[in-house]
Amino acid sequence: MAGGLLGSMDSGWWPRGSSSFAAEVDGLFFLIAVIVGAWLLLCQAALFFFLWQASGRGGPGRLRGLQIETWSIVTLAVAVLACDLVVEAYGHPIWKLIVSAPRGNALVVQVQARQFVWEIRHPGADGRLATEDDIEVQNELHVPVGVPIELHLRSKDVIHSFFLPTVRLKQDVLPGVEIRRWFLPTRVGRFPLACAELCGFAHYRMGGALIVHDPESYQRWLAAGATAIGGLEQGVRR
């Protein structure tokens, strides 16, 4: 039943990734889940086994082997350390991949946050920002599938956090600094965009959408955007 309930969530309890590094992040998550899950089970089992044993009737259990106990605890702690290092060794390259500069020619999109809007400036048909044909849309990030996107993130007022759950990307946006992050969209569709940092009373309404186009629909969007200055669609929430 629990499975059915969880399955009823729009994309399952674990939202399917839509970027090139989502699979790596998910892999790291499941690696950690397996490791800590095993430790958790081991500890709970030992806890309740000893509890059951200690509540047994009869005379006192043996109180010997206290020295061995200490050594077992230390040995197990060293095993925990080994698991920690596995997680670190597996996870660090993924982090480096996410926060590195994008590979190849990335399409630069500028994201400016303010209470409580994402102002997103897309390059027009020329593929370059800060030119005549830039397309500015509120709360919608339009990108072509399969092209690396570089985001230039900044804030006009407080700290916001640019969050694309299916991309597995989250980056706080600060006043006074420009932060760059990249991703490579791998699936066409409409995905959630949200603000993840408390930024005021309407923090909960600072949502939008990531719209990943196939090449044709992207061209159509560019063409429409070029004629209707300021973006063809009104910023739609979510």
Binding site: C43, A46, L47, F50, L51, Q53, A54, S55, P60, G61, R62, L63, R64, G65, E69, S72, I73, V74, L76, A77, V80, L81, D84, V87, E88
Partner: peptide
């Protein structure tokens, strides 16, 4: 991540404290 090690020691020790106990 390494800070998990000292806490693991405390948790293991608490669990081991039940071993051979008379609850």
């Amino acid at each position: 991540i390494i800070i998990s090690v000292p806490f693991a020691v405390v948790v293991f020790a608490l669990i081991a404290t039940l071993r051979g106990g008379m609850l």
